[in-house]
Amino acid sequence: MIAISLKNLDVSYGTTKVVEGANFDVAEGESFALVGESGSGKSTILKAIAGLAPDWTGEISVLGERRGHGVDHAFATRCQMVFQDPYGSLHPRKSVDQVLSEPLKIHGLGNRDQRVEEMLAAVGLDRRFRYRYPHQLSGGQRQRVAIARALMLEPKVMLLDEPTSALDVSVQAEILNLLKKLRREQGLTYLMVTHNLPVVSFMCDRMAVMNKGRIVEIAPASALHDGSFSDPYTQSLYAASGGNPDRKD
């Protein structure tokens, strides 16, 4: 089954069109990356899917159901988003427990105590963090909380907006391992925005490269091994990232 399908998606902010004619399908269980520079519209696509950029035309379907423009409770249980900056995406005056219980309350789900406890364990946070506030946590721990919050409603599709770009390399490795493990265990589908090509190589199966609001190329992640891209923009992006230093030819 197709988890995410975009057909002729245009997204605008006011009178400026930031995404034009985006088309792609992400299969269920696949990990798909959106790559490009800032301002290329990659995060905007995620926002349009999540309902945060309501000014779009075209067609967005998630798990076979078309998405409307408004707030959609049922949609939230299927698809959730993790944001770039764990310092900005958690409410500073809500404890980890409150942050994780909130989606359950909104959707009227019971057994909250146990669910919160299980989720903390799943993202590798000790029980003692449950009643702490974001300022008492490190960047990596905060991003774990943000991932836990997204997973509380047991969605099948996760939208990841540069989940590790604000973190140190060693912490980035921990979070990437966690995301990979969760995907394997829960059969999740990932749509991930990043500008870090080696992260794509580690995490993703396929990638779409964006430039100035358009998708210029869709390539398998294995193209990163030898730089076999057809579009000149992708090639320059690959070269700027240092190419593949492990391969000498």
Binding site: V169, V199, S201, F202, L224, S241, P245
Partner: peptide, 8 residues
């Protein structure tokens, strides 16, 4: 070692 590589 913690840095992901192009050919991972």
């Amino acid at each position: 070692a913690a840095v992901p590589r192009m050919e991972e």
